[in-house]
């Protein structure tokens, strides 16, 4: 699984990245977490507010820090999809 945190160095972007890392390691999920900070790449996902969260190419949230439970459930859904 590939998880991308979109954001150009804002405080919330760093928080979201740390939170995602935490969830991934707690779940022991096989996921690669990337930070995308180039605006040209960020807007390619069609978001207008950072931080954004993209899991396997699908935008899950933008402009806010989702809760741990939300992130967990998104990862679970993707994992169960196989």
């Amino acid at each position: 699984m590939n998880i991308k945190v979109l954001g150009s160095g804002c405080a919330n972007c760093k928080k979201l990245e740390a939170l995602v890392e935490e969830v991934v390691s707690e779940m022991d999920a096989a996921a690669e977490v990337q930070h995308v900070s180039d605006y040209k790449d960020i807007v390619r996902y069609g978001i207008m507010a950072t931080p954004g969260l993209v899991i396997d190419g699908e935008v899950k949230s933008a402009g806010r820090i989702p809760s741990k439970a939300e992130i967990t459930s998104w990862i679970v859904t993707v994992l169960s999809r196989g």
Partner: peptide, 14 residues
Amino acid sequence: TPFCSCSAVPLFLG
């Protein structure tokens, strides 16, 4: 509209 100046660039682009 919820706005944070840290998101000004993607908003401008959008």
